[in-house]
Design a protein around this nucleic acid. Structure first.
Length: 276
DNA sequence: AAAGATGTTGCAAC
DNA sequence: GGTTGCAACATCTT
C-alpha cells in the first residue's frame, strides 16, 4: 500500500511525537519481521530517537548510539502510535515501549511482507550507496530526471516502478502520473520528446505533493500513525477505475498487465506512438 | 467455493 | 542487460 505520499504522511505524523523519546523496551511477537546484521534488538533499549526521515518508501529512525531502524511497510505494513492500554490489534508484530511505557509504537502488518531492519549508520550508508536506492521521486531535479530517462529503453511503467532507478513511486501513483502526463504505460522514454519528459516530471511532483496534502490514498488498509485515513483516493483519475469513463475525455478506461502489475490507463489520452 | 486479485520487492529462470 | 513468474502472506472479490 504505502507509496511515497503515504510514507511521508506517516513520517510527518510520527516525528513530532517521537523525537527525543527513549526506547524503554520492545516486544517482538513475530521475529521474522526484525532483520539484524550486527546489532541485536536489545542494543536498542535505552536509546533515544533523534531523527525520523524518509527515502523513497523507506522510513529511517535514527537513534542516539550511531544506529538506526530502517522500516519498509511493503504492502500492508502499518506503524501505529498508541497509548499503553489501547487494544492490541490482530497482526501486531512488534511493540516499542516509549516515554516510560506510556507510549507505544506498534508495527502491524497483515501480510507480513514488511520488515524492520536494525543497522549501524555505516551499514545504512553502505546500503544506500550500493543497494541501489535511486533518487527520491520528490527530490530529483528535471535535468537529472531527463538525463536518467535518456539512458533507458524500458517501458515507462517498469522504469518508474523500479526503486533502484527512482524511489518512492508504486502502482497507484505511477498510473496516476502517466495518465496526467498523457503517456502510455508501455511507451519507452526513447519515444518521448524533452517536452513530454518535462510534463512527466511536473506531473510527478504535482501529484505527489497533492497526495501528501490529502494525507495519502487509503485503499484497503492504509492508515497513518494516528489511525487516520488519507483522502487522495477520491482524486484518482485511473487507479481502480477500469471500465469507468475517463474524467478528461469520457473514453472507457482500460486495464492491462504491465511488468506484472495491473495497470489502468485511458486508451485515448495515453496513446502509443504509431509504429513504422 | 475455488480461483484470482491486492499497495512490494527479491530471486530464479530464460 | 532485459523480462517473466513466483515467493513471501492474509483477506476480499468474482
Amino acid at each position: 500500500m504505502p507509496e511515497l505520499p503515504e510514507v511521508e504522511t506517516i513520517v510527518r505524523s510520527l516525528k513530532p511525537r517521537l523525537l527525543q523519546k527513549k526506547i524503554g523496551g520492545l516486544d517482538i511477537l513475530l521475529p521474522k519481521i526484525i532483520h539484524t546484521e550486527n546489532i541485536k534488538p536489545n542494543y536498542l533499549i535505552g536509546q533515544t530517537i533523534i531523527n525520523i526521515s524518509r527515502l523513497g518508501k523507506n522510513i529511517v529512525m535514527e537513534l542516539s548510539e550511531k544506529c538506526c531502524l530502517r522500516i519498509h511497510l511493503k504492502m500492508t505494513g502499518q506503524l501505529l502510535l498508541n497509548l499503553h492500554g489501547d487494544t492490541i490489534l490482530k497482526h501486531t508484530h512488534v511493540i516499542f515501549y516509549l516515554d516510560k511505557g506510556r507510549l507505544e509504537l506498534r508495527y502491524r502488518d497483515i501480510r507480513q511482507f514488511g520488515y524492520i531492519q536494525i543497522l549501524t549508520l555505516n551499514e545504512w550508508d553502505f546500503q544506500r550507496k550500493n543497494n541501489s536506492l535511486g533518487p527520491d521521486a520528490l527530490e530529483i531535479s528535471f535535468p537529472a530526471f531527463l538525463a536518467k530517462l535518456r539512458t533507458q529503453k524500458r517501458k515507462l511503467k517498469s522504469l518508474l516502478l523500479d526503486q533502484s532507478f527512482l524511489s518512492g513511486l508504486g502502482n497507484i501513483y505511477v498510473d496516476e502520473i502517466l495518465h496526467q502526463a498523457h503517456i502510455h504505460p508501455e511507451n519507452s522514454p526513447q519515444n518521448l520528446s524533452t517536452r513530454q519528459i518535462r510534463r512527466l516530471h511536473e506531473k510527478m511532483g504535482n501529484i505527489l505533493q497533492a497526495a501528501i496534502q490529502l494525507k495519502g490514498s487509503s485503499v484497503r488498509n492504509y492508515i497513518d500513525a494516528s489511525g487516520e485515513q488519507g483522502r487522495y483516493q477520491t482524486e484518482h483519475q485511473v487507479y481502480g477505475r477500469a471500465g469507468l469513463p475517463c474524467r478528461q475525455c469520457g473514453t472507457h478506461l482500460k486495464k492491462i498487465r504491465v511488468s506484472g502489475r495491473g495497470t489502468c490507463f485511458c486508451p485515448y489520452c495515453q496513446r502509443l506512438p504509431i509504429k513504422g
